[in-house]
Amino acid sequence: MTKTNPLEFIQQVRSETSKVTWPTRRETLVTTVMVFIMVAFAMVFFFLVDLGLSNIVSFVLGLGGN
Rank of each mutant, 00 (worst) to 15 (best):
L51A: 14
A42R: 05
M34C: 04
G52V: 09
L48C: 04
A42K: 09
W22S: 07
V49T: 04
V44L: 15
L63A: 11
N55M: 15
P23D: 05
N55P: 02
M43P: 03
M1N: 04
V49L: 15
T4K: 13
F41R: 00
V20F: 12
L53D: 01
T28A: 12
S58R: 14
G52F: 10
T4N: 04
M34D: 11
L48K: 03
N66Q: 08
M34R: 12
L7D: 05
T21I: 10
L48R: 02
I10K: 06
M38K: 13
V20A: 13
D50F: 13
N55W: 14
S54L: 08
A40Y: 02
G64I: 04
S54G: 07
M1Y: 00
I10C: 04
T32P: 01
I37W: 04
V60F: 09
T2K: 06
T4H: 14
T24Y: 01
L61A: 10
G62W: 11
T28E: 10
V30E: 15
S18L: 12
R25S: 09
S18Q: 13
S15Y: 08
A42V: 06
S18I: 00
R14K: 14
R25F: 05
F36V: 03
Q12S: 07
F47S: 11
T4C: 00
E8Q: 08
L61V: 08
V30Y: 10
G62V: 09
L29W: 05
T2N: 08
T28G: 09
T32K: 13
I37T: 07
M34K: 14
F45D: 02
L48N: 07
E16V: 09
F45C: 03
F46N: 01
N66D: 09
M38P: 01
T32M: 13
T31K: 15
F45W: 11
N55G: 07
S58W: 04
V60Q: 05
P23Y: 09
F41Q: 01
I37F: 12
G64M: 07
L51S: 12
V33G: 00
K19F: 03
G64P: 00
V33M: 15
E27I: 05
G65C: 00
V13C: 10
Q11K: 03
T24K: 11
F9K: 07
F36T: 03
M1R: 03
W22K: 10
A40P: 02
F46R: 01
M38C: 05
W22Y: 15
E8A: 06
G65L: 02
F9C: 03
G64L: 10
G65Y: 02
Q12K: 15
E27S: 13
F45A: 15
T17M: 12
R25A: 13
S15F: 06
S15D: 06
S54N: 12
V30W: 10
A42Y: 06
V33Y: 11
G65I: 00
M1D: 03
